[in-house]
């Protein structure tokens, strides 16, 4: 299973402070669904307000992006700019 990590304290508001856990999903769309099921509200929060680093590459608004069973998934705050 892919390993999910978060560096965002706001994700902890949904997970009860859990920052590392395994996920069954193999795409961002499936990940969002899985997170929503396990931690109600988190899937929507991730979809709307987070970026996702998949094996080190940052994706924003990329529901179709896929990843492998050994992938490292990191939830990070969305990156914007001036």
């Amino acid at each position: 299973m892919a390993r999910l990590t978060t560096i965002s304290g706001r994700v902890g508001d949904f997970t009860g402070g859990l920052t590392h856990f395994d996920v069954e999903a193999r795409s961002v769309r499936a990940l969002v669904r899985e997170l929503e099921q396990r931690f109600p509200g988190l899937g929507e929060f991730v979809e709307e307000q987070m970026a996702i680093a998949i094996d080190g590459e940052i994706f924003q608004d990329a529901l179709t992006a896929e990843f492998g069973a050994d992938s490292e998934i990191v939830l990070i705050p969305r990156i914007s700019g001036g």
Binding site: T5, G56, E57, I58, I76
Partner: peptide
């Protein structure tokens, strides 16, 4: 290199 925020330097 791994950044603290999760990205890999490329």
């Amino acid at each position: 290199a791994k950044t603290v925020y999760g990205a890999t330097v490329k």
